[in-house]
């Protein structure tokens, strides 16, 4: 719900720019993200060594004033409804073992703090990196004797959102020294820079070379993933990272890989690293 005064202010601002004959509206916002007036998020960070950009920026800076305001207030943030739902799932027993997440992990606020900032992580059993969705499924199968969630099941999204939310405000930091993470990072990097689809676009075409500009009506961000799962106004629902990857690849008019396959897991490792230092914003609100 937009407040009329705010809308008028936005219209006035746009008119002002138009009069000045400037396209400055395409620049990322010069704004600070402070959630509920108390928790200051890092939305601009110094890039890690070997990063191609001068500054790592949160996608929040590329959204409109109204969308940014939604994320600043946890009461207004629709993603918080899924955090609540995730908490219910956390405390509900499922599977033959009769256990809930809480049976072993207790209070998520303590046991899951930092988890969302450090995944994806190397999984020695699977000999590949896994993300929170896969970690939940592993726990469900091994410890709860429950069915793993199918990709993008509503409960999978809610529980992932709840777990990542426990790291709200913590800086994203992927440990590439574990196992074979470095070579998966390399694979992800290759995918990031490989042009694909009928439109012949790579991730870098939009998110590295043209971030800050408009692609039709969309203001291109750096494509950082610190806010996933993200509440997208377009879907009026939570959107998982692999759903977004697939959507982006589909938009290049390419065939898109299945969720959690090697190519997308490698991409997750690499893209998460690109957002190093940004605060975990889950659940972020985007257009």
């Amino acid at each position: 719900m937009l407040k009329k005064t705010r809308m008028l202010a936005a219209v006035a601002a746009v008119a002002g720019f138009a009069l000045a004959g400037s396209y400055a509206v395409a620049e990322p916002a010069d704004d600070d993200l402070v959630i509920d007036g108390t928790m200051k998020m890092t939305v601009r960070a110094k890039p890690p060594e070997g990063h191609p950009l001068d500054e790592v920026r949160s996608g929040w800076l590329y959204r409109t004033e109204e969308t940014r305001a939604l994320e600043e207030d946890t009461f207004q943030n629709p993603g918080m409804l899924y955090v609540e739902r995730g908490e219910e799932i956390w405390n509900t027993a499922d599977g033959k073992a009769g256990k809930s997440c809480a049976s072993c992990h207790g209070e998520a606020a303590a046991s899951m703090k930092g988890v969302g900032a450090s995944f994806p992580k190397w999984d020695a059993d699977a000999k590949r990196p896994i993300n929170i969705e896969l970690r939940i499924n592993k726990c469900r199968q091994e410890n709860m004797q429950a069915e793993p969630y199918k990709f993008d099941h509503a409960d999978q999204k809610a529980l992932t959102t709840y777990i990542k939310h426990q790291s709200l405000g913590m800086p994203v930091s992927v440990d590439l020294s574990q196992g074979d993470m470095q070579s998966w990072w390399e694979k992800g990097k290759e995918t990031y820079y490989t042009r694909t689809g009928q439109l012949n676009l790579s991730c870098a075409s939009c998110h590295e070379l043209n971030n800050g500009k408009y692609i039709r009506a969309d203001h291109l961000s750096q494509g950082n993933v610190n806010g996933f799962p993200t509440y997208r106004l377009k879907q009026a629902n939570m959107v998982s990272l692999h759903n977004r990857f697939r959507g982006c690849i589909r938009d290049t008019r390419a065939e898109y890989p299945k969720a959690f396959t090697d190519v997308l897991m490698a991409l997750e490792v690499y893209v998460t690293w690109r957002g190093t230092g940004l605060s975990v914003e889950t659940p972020a609100v985007r257009q």
């Binding site: 207004q76 629709p78 009026a236 629902n237």
Partner: peptide, 8 residues
């Protein structure tokens, strides 16, 4: 009106 209506 979109999902999860909010009024202020």
């Amino acid at each position: 009106i979109s999902a999860n209506p909010y009024f202020e």
